[in-house]
Amino acid sequence: MKPPNFLYARPDTLEDALRLLSEHGTGAKLLAGGQSLVPMLNLRMAEPKLLIDMNRVAELSGIERENGKLRIGALTRHRALETSREAAQAEPMIARAAREIGHLAIRNRGTIGGSIAHADPSAEWPLLAVALDARVELRSTARTRTVAAREFFTGPFTTAAGADEILTAVEFPCAPQQSGFGFQELCRRPGDFAIVAAAGRVRMRDGRCIGATLAIGGADATPRHIAEIDRIVAGSRGEDAVVREAAAAAARVLDPSGDIHASAEYRRKMAAVLVTRALREAFASVAANS
C-alpha cells in the first residue's frame, strides 16, 4: 500500500498555487491536511500527476471575525477550530462539530477547507456549512467568487468548484442572540464518520421561535438543508407535535442511499430520530441560556 509516483510542489503563496493548478489542470491535486487524500494515494485510488501542497501558504489559515461573520481560512486545522476561543464565541457549534471529527491525530492535521472540498456527505464541516448557510470562497487565477454552501455540494464527493479553483475560506454567520443549537450524530464508535447527523439552530423571542435552520448529513447525496422544517418550527415553542412533524418532514424529503454501514431505510428513520433530538437540544439550550 504505497502511493503511486507523482510530482510534488510546495508553493509559498496562493498565487503560485493557483498558477500551478491552472498550468497542470486536472492532472494536479491539491494537498491540504492529507487526511482524506493520502489514504487514497496509499490505496492508489487517486493517481495525480502533480501534488500541490498548500501547507506552506500562510495566507490560507486563520480565523477572523468581522461584520457578524466568522471567516475561516481553508487550511485551518480541525483541532484549531475545536480549541479556538474566537470561533467558539462566534458560533459555539463549530467547536462542538470539530470535536466529533475522527481522532486527535486526524484533527491535528485535517483542515476545514479540505473537508468541505472533499464533500463527504457524512462529514461534519459540510453539514455545518449547510446548516448555518455559510459561504464558500473560491479563487482561480482568473477570479474570486463565493458560493453558498447550500449550492456548493452537488453530490457525494462532488462540488461546484472548478478544476482550476482553490477553496480559500469559509464564512460562517455568527450565532444570533437568543438562539440555541442542536448538534446530533449517530455513529457506532466515537470518531467514526456519522451514519446520520443533524445540526440546527433556533432563534427565539418571547418563548417563540422566530427563525430556524436545520440540516441533515449522511441521509442524502449531500448534506441537506430542509427548508420545510424551518417553516414548521418557526412560530412554535418547540412543542412535541411540532418536533414530530419536523422529523416526519425530514423522513419524507430525504433520499438516502444504503451502504455497508446502514441501509437507506435505516438512514431515513435515523434522520427523523436525529432531527427530533437536535431540535429538542436546540430548544433546551435556548431555555438554559436565557
Binding site: Y8, D53, N108
Partner: peptide, 15 residues
C-alpha cells in the same frame, strides 16, 4: 508538538 499519523504525511512535508 502535535500527534499525527506518519502514514498520512509525506516525508517532504516534514521539511
Amino acid at each position: 508538538g502535535a500527534s499525527v499519523r506518519a502514514c498520512l504525511m509525506l516525508a517532504v512535508q516534514a521539511d
